[in-house]
Design a protein around this nucleic acid. Structure first.
Lengths: 213, 213
DNA sequence: CTTTATATGTGAGAGCCTCTCACTTTGACA
DNA sequence: TGTCAAAGTGAGAGGCTCTCACATATAAAG
């Protein structure tokens, strides 16, 4: 074993590992989990398979995670962070207080669901498992807070009032449902072709209008 | 073994069965599955446990179902039928062409989700498994068709136009998202108290109003 | 009223999974 | 250099899905 191939990120995820201790198994297992969740679905994910991918024994993960569900939770958390990140970035191109900002947030939300349906399902969907996780809840609060803030700014205010909460909630419900219908293929099965951008804009307008009589 | 306790629905689901062949194992397994799905969650459901509940060997189900997932699909299908049924009934009290009818449909949808979250998740959620099932898709079409019809009638028409499809779709997305947020407990975790009826009415109004500029 | 065929249930077991435990390896640091 | 804690392993207990050869009750036919 040469000095060169000793440590570091040499191991490419292939089952051959030439070095005693793994570079950073924990991170690599999370990555493997994410991949598997994505192409087998959150159910049908197995720790064993993640081990095979990472090239370690099936006992190894339990030095880093308490549980199978802890591995999944880690992936879910990563997803929330990524989503939050994307949402923040999506804000930048548009001036504050515009509807465009609100539309942009919705677009990120649904687009995330479409590009990473497995992770998205993990973040929501499977409730019973990682239910009371404070980190996840906090991330959720962050995301929701961002929406509320943009909704308030659209009104020209910087403080969030009940009206803003209400609107943010309506928007959230909508994009959430839209995302699920989309990834479950319900829309295509109903022979419905939907222009996402179009729909998002319409809904944002409808929600942000003055309350109905 | 007396003649009285011979056949029929004598066996109450308890693991003791005094008769040679089961009364109607298929139906009973579906019932057991539904119950288990409801209180353990759709994942965490196991065929073995259903067998224990029904009091048969673990090989028995495979005389009636191809698969674990076929059992689940049967439960999902039952759910769709029940939901459809409830929606039809919910229409009756309100005169045709009213917003009340549309609100009522939404209420049934979310209420179903709340009272049977496990089954609801099964009906949607787990896509990969019972994905291309024609029965499920047809039932979905029925439900969606009903919404479209009410939306058209609200406009005073009996024929469904693109506008109606659009509106029905918006409504669907919304109640779908609302249902999931509700059963995942996201709302309570966000310290949001929401009056369902109130929200449903507001959304229906917003969606059924004239299109925004 | 037998006989036979069919549907339905069973026990055993193959092969997968999760998770534990005693044990080994290895890198860090005193 | 010696010791320890962290990280990985093989074996295996126990649970799961699903198959297969076999058993048994009911219905249909003789």
């Amino acid at each position: 074993m040469s000095d060169a191939e000793k440590n570091s990120e040499m191991d490419d995820g292939a089952p051959k590992r030439s070095t005693y201790h793994h570079g950073d198994l924990r991170a690599q297992l999370i990555e493997a989990t994410r991949h598997l969740v994505e192409d087998k679905g959150p159910d049908h994910f197995s720790v064993s398979e993640a081990c095979r991918v990472a090239g370690v024994s099936t006992a190894a993960p339990y030095k880093h995670f308490k549980d199978k569900s802890e591995m999944l939770r880690e992936v879910a958390l990563g997803g929330m962070q990524r989503q939050y990140q994307q949402m923040t970035e999506a804000l930048a191109p548009h001036p504050p207080g515009t509807l465009d900002r609100i539309v942009a947030l919705g677009r990120v939300y649904t687009q995330f669901a479409v590009t990473e349906p497995g992770v998205f399902r993990l973040m929501f969907g499977l409730s019973k498992d990682h239910d009371g996780d404070e980190c996840l809840i906090d991330m959720g609060r962050n995301v929701f807070g961002m929406v509320q803030q943009q909704v308030a700014q659209f009104r020209g205010s910087d403080v969030i009032e009940p009206l803003d909460e209400r609107r943010a909630f309506l928007l959230w419900s909508f994009v959430h449902g839209l995302s699920f219908l989309q990834i479950d293929g319900k829309l295509s099965k109903m022979d419905m072709a939907v222009d996402m951008d179009d729909v998002l804009r319409e809904v944002s307008e409808r929600v942000m209008r003055d309350a109905p009589a």
